[in-house]
């Protein structure tokens, strides 16, 4: 219990620092930034309490908002994907999820990619709708969602491969 707690605290802090100090200054082609901090929500243990995950996601989003002066857009988007996560898990992993035996290191790559993609696109869509906050600029929202999602998914997959313990 204690080691799980410390692992997730470190992960929380590292992801926030990584996001705020490095990833937000990439500005690829002027405006495309990856938002990799959602890995915390994606990789949170499934067996743990959902209430804690929702509260933690809110805090995570709010910390990012605090650094970026963006009001509550990251908090909103993070809370939403934290709530919607079981549905996404069911659609991307199917039967394994029902038995509650997923370990993110051992599942096959295809379904993991589906899971990340669904989560990221949903997060980014809400994030940019809240940021731009105007129906007349829906094209801009979709454009930003598309490009940033590609970037985020790519980077998330790379990070998970890089930091996963190899099952031997």
């Amino acid at each position: 219990m204690n080691s799980i707690f410390s692992i997730h605290t470190t992960r929380f802090i590292l992801l926030v620092v990584f996001q705020v100090l490095i990833l937000n200054h990439i500005n690829f082609l002027g405006y495309i930034n990856p938002y990799v901090y959602i890995l915390f929500i994606a990789l949170y243990p499934i067996k743990n309490n959902r209430v804690i995950l929702i509260v933690l996601s809110f805090l995570l989003g709010l910390t990012i908002d605090l650094f970026l002066d963006t009001g509550g857009i990251h908090a909103g988007a993070s809370v939403f994907i934290a709530y919607a996560r079981p549905v996404l898990l069911k659609t991307s992993f199917g039967a394994i999820y029902e038995h509650q035996t997923i370990k993110f290191n051992t599942v096959d790559f295809g379904s993991k990619l589906t899971y990340f993609t669904l989560l990221t696109v949903m997060h980014h869509l809400i994030l940019f709708s809240l940021e731009i906050f105007s129906l007349s600029k829906i094209i801009l929202v979709l454009q930003k969602t598309l490009f940033s999602s590609i970037f985020t998914i790519l980077l998330s997959v790379l990070i998970t491969i890089l930091f996963s313990k190899k099952p031997r």
Binding site: L62, L66, F67, D69, G71, A75, V79, F80, L130, F133
Partner: peptide, 26 residues
Amino acid sequence: FLLLFCVSLLFTIQSHSYHKSKFINS
């Protein structure tokens, strides 16, 4: 979820209006 989502919506709306008192700033 609903409660926290509404709180973040509130912050967002505040940030879109000029010089509203906001707590979330850097």
